[in-house]
């Protein structure tokens, strides 16, 4: 059987040569993403702004205007509507009353239920969320803290494990991935809720996974080819790991694709974020983080010092490329 190979053997693409273009593009995209996030803002879900969310499922696709009038007539503040998943499902978001606590929120839910049932017979309510301002503040704080800690923790790990240059290049690349994801949510105005924070953290985890594999190969090659200059060494490492990078991205995309198409509407935003993150993360691994090592001044000798004190010394030392060949 002829096996499928997505990437031909022994590719020799000059990724390092392209780095100035890649850096410029990356910087541009990141600025755009940050700009979009600041300008348009994120469509934060009730998890983060507090409030009340009711998900209603109609018999037939309703006219959104009619739903809106029904909600407005309740007189409980500015509501917002969003079609969610399929045209029959509408998410209604309402502000939480300032006073009255649980009783008042309850009363609003009841009022909305009654009004909707009167206007649209057969409507069912599949989900309610109420989050008070206090809890939503904590959720934001924890979410931001979690992402920051993950990024910093991982950067420190790769600094101790390798060289400081690896720590910084990883940090930069991952911040880029996170900012791009935020930009995506700002532009599409998809709802940004707690699930999306989980997605962002997963992107961080995946992206670092990807960079570790390449970094590990760079380090291995630094020991193998002491005389090789850094540019060709990085090119070699990225090219050697390219089949794996592509294979893994494709398998994960297949799995996520299944989730996007068949996983139900609740997870759709989550999956979309993740797919974008995989693309962005793979891009930043191949084009940004490894080439950045050169800009940061990593030299082949750097590995020498570290090697003596780290577990890296356990790795097999192999001579020149053709060594060990036993036809």
């Amino acid at each position: 059987m002829k096996l499928l190979k997505l990437v031909p053997d022994n590719t020799n693409i000059g990724f390092v040569k392209l780095r100035h273009w890649a850096f410029a593009l990356t910087a541009l995209l990141t600025v755009l993403a940050v700009g979009a996030t600041l300008h348009r803002g994120l469509n934060l879900g009730v998890d983060f702004v507090g409030g009340l969310m009711i998900e209603a499922r109609f018999q037939q696709p309703p006219q959104l205007d009619k739903v809106r009038t029904t909600v407005d007539r309740l007189g409980v503040g500015d509501g917002s509507l969003q079609q969610f998943g399929d045209p029959r499902t509408v998410q209604i978001r309402l502000p939480l009353p300032e006073q009255g606590g649980a009783g008042a929120a309850n009363a609003i839910v009841e009022k909305a239920r009654k009004a909707m049932t009167a206007e649209f017979p057969g409507v069912t309510f599949s989900r309610y969320d109420t989050v008070s301002g206090k809890v939503s503040g904590e959720l934001i704080r924890n979410g931001v803290l979690a992402v920051m800690l993950a990024v910093i923790g991982i950067a420190i790990f790769s600094w101790f494990r390798y060289e400081w240059q690896f720590g910084i290049s990883t940090f930069v690349a991952i911040m880029h991935d996170v900012l791009m994801t935020l930009g995506f949510f700002a532009i599409t105005q998809l709802e940004f809720d707690l699930n999306i924070v989980a997605a962002v953290l997963t992107i961080v985890g995946y992206s670092i996974n990807d960079k570790m594999v390449i970094d590990d190969r760079i380090r291995e090659n630094m020991r193998k080819y002491r005389k090789m200059d850094m540019k060709s060494l990085i090119d070699l490492s990225v090219n050697e790991t390219l089949p794996r990078t592509v294979m893994t991205s494709v398998t994960i995309m297949l799995a996520l694709g299944a989730l996007l198409l068949f996983g139900g509407h609740v997870l759709r935003g989550f999956t979309a974020a993740m797919m974008l993150g995989i693309v962005v993360g793979t891009y930043s691994s191949v084009y940004v983080s490894s080439s950045l090592l050169i800009t940061l001044g990593l030299t082949p000798q750097a590995g020498e010092r570290k090697e003596r004190k780290s577990i890296a010394a356990q790795a097999e030392r192999v001579g020149p490329r053709d060594d060990g060949a036993r036809p």
Partner: peptide, 9 residues
């Protein structure tokens, strides 16, 4: 007081 509620049908 109820500070967070999530109900799924």
């Amino acid at each position: 007081t109820v500070v967070e509620e999530r109900t799924v049908g």
